[in-house]
Write a protein that binds this DNA or RNA. Sequence first.
DNA 1: CTCATCATGTAACCAGTTACATGATTTT
DNA 2: AAAATCATGTAACTGGTTACATGATGAG
Lengths: 173, 173
Amino acid sequence: VTVALEHAILVALRERPASGYELARRFDRSIGFFWTATHQQIYTVLRRMDGLGWVRGEVVAQDDRPDKKVYATTPDGDAELARWLGDPLGPQPQRLDIGVKVRATATGDQAMVAAVLADLRRQRDRHAERLAEYLAMEVDDPVHGLVLRGGVMIEKGWLEWCEDAIRVLEELP
Amino acid sequence: VTVALEHAILVALRERPASGYELARRFDRSIGFFWTATHQQIYTVLRRMDGLGWVRGEVVAQDDRPDKKVYATTPDGDAELARWLGDPLGPQPQRLDIGVKVRATATGDQAMVAAVLADLRRQRDRHAERLAEYLAMEVDDPVHGLVLRGGVMIEKGWLEWCEDAIRVLEELP
DNA sequence: CTCATCATGTAACCAGTTACATGATTTT
DNA sequence: AAAATCATGTAACTGGTTACATGATGAG
């Protein structure tokens, strides 16, 4: 295993043991800055990790809600995480749809430019929204602050770039 | 088809017709800012696109080198590109290994912090390198300039964040 | 009684990666 | 003769997405 959801889950479970359902919600928030995952995938991977002995799940009965299976990391899981941390990361693959779209306008007609402009405006608004969300968050832990600043940096960068792109495409021909 | 390599290839072929081999090299450079692809994948996808009628390949004999198959977009391919451009992009999935690694240090021991620091320094150097590369490039086309500024923005942002992260992790406990 | 939330899964599919393979031509 | 570059592919695998499915519990 080189790099996958497994390690993100190990990190999350070390912060606090959780059920698949709870993990899925945490992957929509803080951890989701850097990694997203659906509940289907999380359940599947948790079972595999249990089989590998990296985590151990325990059924917890609940009165007011359906029962849940709470997972925690094992020493083997911690060892695997340490191994992965020591493994240097390769170059991150870039995959940016909006960049491809913008590039298409270099040889595109009026209609294509208009379509990309519409998408750029949507994208700009989305980044502005997320930036506002991040700026409203407060954290005490220095590492979480660092992670948050990463999110702010990304959103701010893209927001400015979208505005730049809109300006360029509007004044194109 | 919602969003995939196909559209990046259509954009590239509209800029200039090319063989699979040539495309693969262009995906290592300019287009690679926003999309990467191996030659294996490119050949496979080109054949499928030929089957769909989005591109048409023509064998070109060469004296000094092996023959090649040069592809160009067709009207159907252009139509498919226009359709995709009009289709609003969904939220881009974030997947950032280094962010997961940094977050692991929040509950990690000394050895884990040291491992992540080492990776952060490697990552920082890589971003600095790429930033220098981008800053050395010159373009005339306004759209290509825009795309290049996007690359600069990303690299600069990550470079600063890596430095931030190194500072935080060094002064941690 | 119905809807929202909590909770857990299976199955089919797809895009992309990795490993393997072949052959022409040019340069050293 | 060997190595580098140009050129094109196939096959197996894997991580992740999408669609489908079920059931408990509590709130209105």
